[in-house]
Amino acid sequence: MTVSTQIQLASRPVGTPGPENFSTASVELPDLAPGEVRVRNDFVSVDPYMRGRMNDAKSYVPPFGLGETMSGGAVGRVIESRSDTLPVGTGVLHGLGWRDVAQAPDTQFSPLPETGLPLSVFLGAAGMTGLTAYAGLKRVAALTEGDVVFISGAAGAVGSIAGQVARKLGASRVIGSAGSAEKVALLRDRYGYDDAFNYKDAPVREQLRALTPDGIDVYFDNVGGDHLEAALDRLNTGGRAALCGAISQYNSTERSPGPDNMANLVTRSLKLEGFIVGRHQDLQPEFAEKMTGWLADGSVVFDETVVDGIENAAGAFLAMMRGANTGKMLVRV
């Protein structure tokens, strides 16, 4: 009998989540049925969107169920198989989430190409994270050659890739925000940002204005709040904003006030569009071909913040929500 260690949602958080909102379960797995596989996970993903699913509220995906294992992206290899399509040893991607061993019909697992890249990259730069950056900039914001681009949360999982993708798509200048001097240095020295600022040093509006004397054409928003207001100040006529996330507000217990400069949408003919990466899956083949090439030749780089042990998945999630990660936050099983 194989036992799977799984992390479950024990209670719904009010405000900022804590360890008390999670529990650990040991689940005995039955013998494989025909068509099933058993996968030992190598890495499990923790992501900001999971905070919204902890609330019992209608959204683009159902909320997590109380007493149920946290679902989400994971990669691993098949260790037992009764499948004709996924033999033992196959690297796979799946959405069964926070567990060390996953077992299900083979239709719930996607085989991964053997690219020479680590499997973890398919949870980050070559996975949903990278596709989010690509779809948001190329399709939603319609980035064109010569655009000046501002990206908030630029040292996080999506932001660290988005700055590099913006350059690949022809941006003339890329500016980012982050939450520490060390992360600001990474933006400039590693991720190819032309300039960057620490949003804790001074009001975002003041810092962005100083760095963008000629305004910006595209804003990729991971933060919301004061960053969105600052971007609305600096967007040029015809500017576009791709609204990917609003992590500054995810733990709020009261309604957050809207930007005070929304009239700029009218006077400057601006476009703000929120998007969910799952609605842009048709871009996946194009993105995968380009990103695997960029990663292979080293023209796009990625970083991972790794926490060891499935029992520490909740702690990794809480740390990510505090901004403790650089690049993609992962749990190594």
Rank of each mutant, 00 (worst) to 15 (best):
F122D: 01
Q103R: 04
G89W: 05
A74P: 02
V92A: 09
P34Y: 04
P62R: 01
T107L: 01
L119W: 01
F109E: 02
T90G: 05
R40A: 04
G65E: 15
V121R: 03
E80R: 14
Q103I: 11
V121P: 00
G76Y: 06
L86F: 04
R99H: 06
H94K: 09
A33K: 06
P118R: 10
L112R: 03
D84I: 05
L32N: 14
D106S: 15
R77E: 01
G73L: 09
V37M: 04
P111W: 10
R77G: 03
E68F: 07
V61K: 08
Y49R: 12
T69W: 06
N55E: 06
S59D: 14
L119H: 03
D56V: 13
G35Y: 14
V39E: 07
P111G: 05
S71W: 03
N55D: 06
T107A: 01
A102H: 03
V75R: 07
A57D: 02
P48M: 10
R40Y: 02
F43T: 08
T85F: 06
T85L: 08
V46E: 08
A57T: 08
A33H: 04
H94V: 02
L93C: 07
V37S: 03
V44H: 12
S83L: 03
V78L: 07
V121M: 02
R38N: 00
V75K: 06
N41P: 01
T107I: 00
G95M: 15
G72C: 12
W98A: 05
A102I: 13
T69N: 05
F43H: 15
V88D: 08
A104Q: 05
M70P: 06
L117M: 06
P63S: 12
D84M: 09
G73K: 07
T85M: 08
N41Q: 04
L93P: 03
D31E: 15
G52V: 03
P111Y: 08
T107K: 00
V92Q: 08
